[in-house]
């Protein structure tokens, strides 16, 4: 028996909107730790890891570890039917081939339930090693989204370089080239507007903008984004989910031939 009641249902709606274009089908894993997911995109270039900790739910009952295969597009369709202020409860019985999403309006005058068929998904689980990153950049998530969108109108790939000067996003394409430098800036009115750069070693890595643009679909989840980089390792783009967990996107770099 599984019953997870999330008062801020909009968070789950935003989570689905942030990953449904990158991943088609995925297993949601439910344990005493929380509600989580790990899935790769179909070309195995990027990986998404989601965690919603059990403490973040108003009610969290998970009698035994459960893995539920879902088509994310279908799940997003159902969650779109929940109001932004609705409380969402996820329910499943042991051995059932369906999951139920229950939506309650804040005043309790409208209660809906949507039953979705589960699917068997044979997915590989990858071990993500704990890593010390050479450079960690925290910046406003909207700024990162803007940069990725702007650069993708010029080129297909972005080179992200971190030096003492700041973080530079560069691209080249048929029509020309572009460089955007963001300097560390902590003298802002709101802490979430700051750009903070922690650098141990200078880093320069190249990534496909097609994927970074997928990641920025998570912008509504958090006002800041953290980009962790090490030479010759996948980048981690993390959006924290208020007091509950995170969505982390890992992207393998492109290397020169």
């Amino acid at each position: 028996m599984l019953e997870l009641r999330l008062v801020q249902g909009s968070l789950l709606k935003k989570v689905l909107e942030s990953i449904k274009e990158l991943v088609n089908d995925a297993n949601f894993d439910c344990s005493s730790t929380g509600f989580s997911l790990q899935a790769m995109d179909s070309s195995h270039v990027a990986l998404v890891a989601l965690l919603l900790r059990s403490e973040g739910f108003e009610h969290y009952r998970c009698d035994r570890n459960l893995s539920m295969g879902m088509n994310l597009n279908n799940m997003a369709k159902m969650l779109k039917c929940a109001g932004n202020d609705d409380i969402i409860t996820i329910k499943a019985d042991d051995g059932s081939d369906t999951v139920t999403f229950m939506f309650e309006s804040p005043t309790q005058d409208k209660i809906s339930d949507f039953e979705m068929k589960l699917m068997d998904i044979d997915s590989e689980h990858l071990g993500i090693p704990e890593a010390e990153y050479d450079a960690i950049v925290r910046m406003p998530s909207a700024e990162f989204a803007r940069i990725c969108k702007d650069l993708s109108s010029i080129g297909d790939t972005v080179v992200i370089s971190v030096t003492k000067e700041g973080v530079k996003f560069s691209t080249k394409g048929d029509i020309g080239a572009a460089n955007i430098v963001c300097r560390q800036n902590t003298t802002v009115d709101k802490p979430d507007d700051a750009t903070v750069i922690e650098m141990k070693e200078p880093v320069s890595l190249q990534f496909a903008l097609r994927y970074t643009n997928f990641f920025t679909k998570a912008t509504p989840l958090s006002s800041t984004v953290t980009i962790s980089l090490s030479n010759e390792l996948p980048v981690v783009v993390e959006y924290k989910i208020a007091e509950m967990g995170y969505v982390r996107f890992y992207l393998a770099p492109k290397i020169e031939e």
Binding site: M40, V45, L47, L126, G127, T157, P234, L251, I255
Partner: peptide
């Protein structure tokens, strides 16, 4: 333009 690496080259299957 560079060669796109796969994520599975970095993270072992568990």
């Amino acid at each position: 333009k560079g060669v796109q690496l796969n994520i599975t080259e970095f993270f072992p299957t568990t």
